[in-house]
Design a protein around this nucleic acid. Structure first.
Lengths: 131, 131
DNA sequence: CTTAAAATACGAAATCATTCGTAGATTAAT
DNA sequence: ATTAATCTACGAATGATTTCGTATTTTAAG
C-alpha cells in the first residue's frame, strides 16, 4: 500500500535498505538472517519494518507467492544523495566545502576515488569555470 | 547537572547549538528570539531544551545571576566531525570518498575551499603534486 | 508594599521509531 | 489428516525527542 510520497528512510530502515541493495530481492527471512550477522533482531521486527517500509513506498514487494520478496524502491545513490543533502543542511548549514575538508582531513579514500575527485576538481578549475 | 559523558546532539539540540556558536553566550530569551526568526517556538520549549542540553553536558550555563547565560560546551568543528563520522557510517558505510564525490558533484563550494581541498589532495598523493 | 512582568523548574502530552508477542493462515512432514 | 514449522498481520509496549502548560520564584514598577 503506497500512500504518500516516499520520505527519507530512518536509521533502522536504512540498515535494511543496505542489505537489499547488496543482496538484491530478498525474503524477510533472508534480510533477517543478514541483520543477525550484525546484531540480534527478532524475525517479526524485521518483518514489521519491511511492512512499514512498503507502506511508505521505500520498498516494493512481490506478494503473489506465500513468501513475499522485497526490493528497494530507490537506488542506493539516490537515497544517499537525499540523506546527504539533509545532513549537509542540518549539520553543516549547507557548507559543502567545509564538509569535504572535514572528510578528506580525517578519512581514507581509495586510489580510484581520489582520481575521480581530481577529475571533478579539474572541471571546476577557475580558468574553465563559468560562474 | 552533568551526568554521563556528552552524547551527540539531536537535531533540535543542534539547531540551538548553531545559534550559540554564531552568537556566543546567550540567554534563553536571546536563543528563543533567534529561533523564532526561523520558525515558531515557545519560550519554554527553548528553555527546556537548553536545560536538557545542560544535563547532557552539551552546554554549560552561568546561573550565578537570575538570568542564566548558556554557552556551547564544545566547538562547532568538533561536534560537526563527530556527527559526520556517525553519518558516514550509517549512510555511506564508511566510504568517505563516495561521499566526497557526491558532495562535489552536486554542490557549490567556495573558491577558498576548493584551494584547500586541492592542497589536501596534493598532500595525499605526492606524485600528483604540481610544482 | 503590592502588583505585574519575566524567569526557571518541571510534569506531561504528542509524536515517532523500534521492538516484540500473539494470532491466524498456509505449507510441509509424518 | 494431524501436527509442526513457517509465514504474514497487527496491536501494543518502550524509549527518545519535541513541545507546551502550569507552578513557582525573582525582579522591577507603581
Amino acid at each position: 500500500m503506497h500512500t504518500s510520497a516516499h520520505p527519507l528512510p530512518t536509521d533502522g530502515e536504512l540498515e535494511i535498505l543496505q542489505i537489499l541493495w547488496e543482496k538484491g530481492p530478498s525474503t524477510v527471512r533472508e534480510v533477517n538472517d543478514e541483520m543477525n550477522r550484525i546484531r540480534a533482531v527478532g524475525y517479526t521486527t524485521t518483518l514489521k519494518l519491511l511492512q512499514i517500509m512498503d507502506s511508505k513506498g521505500l520498498v516494493s514487494r512481490d506478494s503473489s507467492q506465500k513468501i513475499h520478496v522485497y526490493v528497494a524502491a530507490f537506488p542506493q545513490e539516490q537515497t544517499r544523495k537525499a540523506l546527504l543533502d539533509r545532513f549537509l543542511e542540518t549539520a553543516f548549514q549547507g557548507a559543502a566545502g567545509e564538509m569535504v575538508l572535514q572528510l578528506l582531513g580525517g578519512h581514507q579514500t581509495t586510489q580510484d576515488e581520489l582520481s575521480r575527485i581530481r577529475e571533478l576538481l579539474a572541471d571546476r578549475d577557475p580558468q574553465n569555470r563559468e560562474s
